[in-house]
Design a protein around this nucleic acid. Structure first.
Lengths: 245, 245
DNA sequence: CGATAAATTGAGCCCAATCAAGGCAAGTGG
DNA sequence: CCACTTGCCTTGATTGGGCTCAATTTATCG
């Protein structure tokens, strides 16, 4: 873990954008976009940039969430587990999503990096103070929540009503359309999730995921190299196989 | 939350509360709770109370949502359909939930009354105006969105990882814990959903739902009369069968 | 009471889970 | 460098839970 300690360049002229933020890819998309330079400076003083390795847990189920974060780059899995160990991934967060559950101290989820992930974390009290000062910030958080709600409901349709084949195709489509431009294109990318993760996301087993990927490959819907690198000749075709209108 | 008009606050007889609202069961729980009497009056001028019969569509998938509503009593199903007709219920809303999707004109869902349902509807422009005037209102809507998000994610675990038996038990538990006190208790109530609805909610077929209900009955987890009236001797037992901690 | 919808029950089948074996690539230590 | 391990993925054989199709019973309502 690395902590960047260089908050800003000029102490006096605080109307400038803080240095850490100026180069930040998430500055416009995340929560930071609605803040004034002053507020951004305020926030940046209390923020820490961290790198998280795959599999590293960010927040455990039932633990106290003491911080919020913007995802700078990478992918984070949000998951829930049953008492007997059965697991379900209930959300994937891509850059530049905001991560964290406002107004609750208990997290009902486990958040875990799927690949090497950079985040910019803030303590909860700073966020809550800024919310009360800047009404636009709560609006942004509200919109993020509504976006996640829409995504969750779309996925419920996939979990409840689609076949294994459609599920895998839908998953590939999601990744294709959310991939960081620096990591690949919609037509060619590396999967950020292992087969086990994909299974947990789709409510399937590893074996079924593997078989369906093989099937899609044999039907020329996708090409695969090294089991992680995917090429999609036609996104249209992939959508169609995934039962997406 | 701060009270602006002190002189109105001390009126015990609620004479400043609009007549329609004074007797409204949803006045404290819904969005109305955060409004001042002035704002409540404003809202009530533009609100219409409606009764909706079961099966009646409130807002169709892809249609323009021109209004928001508080549910006074009843249950509303939110569902999504695939091109070939496969359907999934992605949310149930009970009184006094707020219904409607802020900041989007296109609804991605179909909303339909499951039983006789009374709602209090407002045009979207009035709500949006009030949001800009009363910051507490957006906070309330935000919390409602977060609540729905939590529920959606809980249900994703059910859809993706639970067995048919556990799904049905989980469904019964949800109903038991959300039933309107005037309609029944957690231990005895009428199901607000048909077998077909339950199947769509659980990602199962009607037949499987029926078989599992029969199984739960034979195992004395529940008793059933007239296929709708349910008695639950032990909620603990029901939770356990449903895989809920 | 008859008509119609809703729910139950049964038989057989199929898709995905389970159980089991083996491949492949990257490390590790002799 | 090679044997061995380890993690991850694929493939095969078999099983079983839930789906499909079909018949019957039960509720609802004119």
């Amino acid at each position: 873990m690395q902590i960047v300690n260089e908050h800003r360049r000029k102490d006096i002229h605080n109307s400038d954008i803080p240095t850490v933020c100026a180069a930040c890819e998430a500055r416009h998309g995340g929560v930071c976009g609605t803040l004034t330079p002053d507020q951004l400076l305020d926030l940046s003083r209390h923020s820490t940039r961290r790198s998280i390795e795959p599999g590293r847990e960010v927040v455990g189920q039932g633990e106290t969430t003491d911080s919020y974060a913007n995802i700078i780059s990478g992918v984070v899995k949000l998951s829930k587990v049953l008492a007997d160990g059965r697991q379900q991934i209930v959300g994937l967060q891509f850059a530049p999503d905001f991560m964290g559950r406002p107004f609750t101290r208990e997290s009902a989820l486990t958040a875990e990096a799927a690949v090497n992930t950079d985040i910019c974390a803030f303590p909860r009290n700073v966020i809550e103070r800024l919310v009360s000062e800047a009404p636009g910030l709560e609006h942004r958080l509200h919109e993020q929540a509504l976006k996640e709600l829409d995504e969750a409901r779309d996925w419920m349709l996939t979990l409840g009503r689609k076949t294994a084949q459609e599920k895998v195709a839908s998953f590939l489509y999601i990744i294709a359309t959310h991939i960081d431009p620096e990591q690949g294109t919609a037509n060619e990318f590396d999967l950020p999730l292992s087969r086990a993760d994909i299974a947990d996301y789709l409510g399937l087993t590893i074996e079924t995921v593997s078989r369906q990927i093989t099937k899609l490959r044999k039907e020329n819907v996708i090409r695969i190299e090294n089991s992680r690198h995917v090429t999609v000749p036609s996104l249209e075709r992939l959508m169609h196989v995934g039962g997406i209108d």
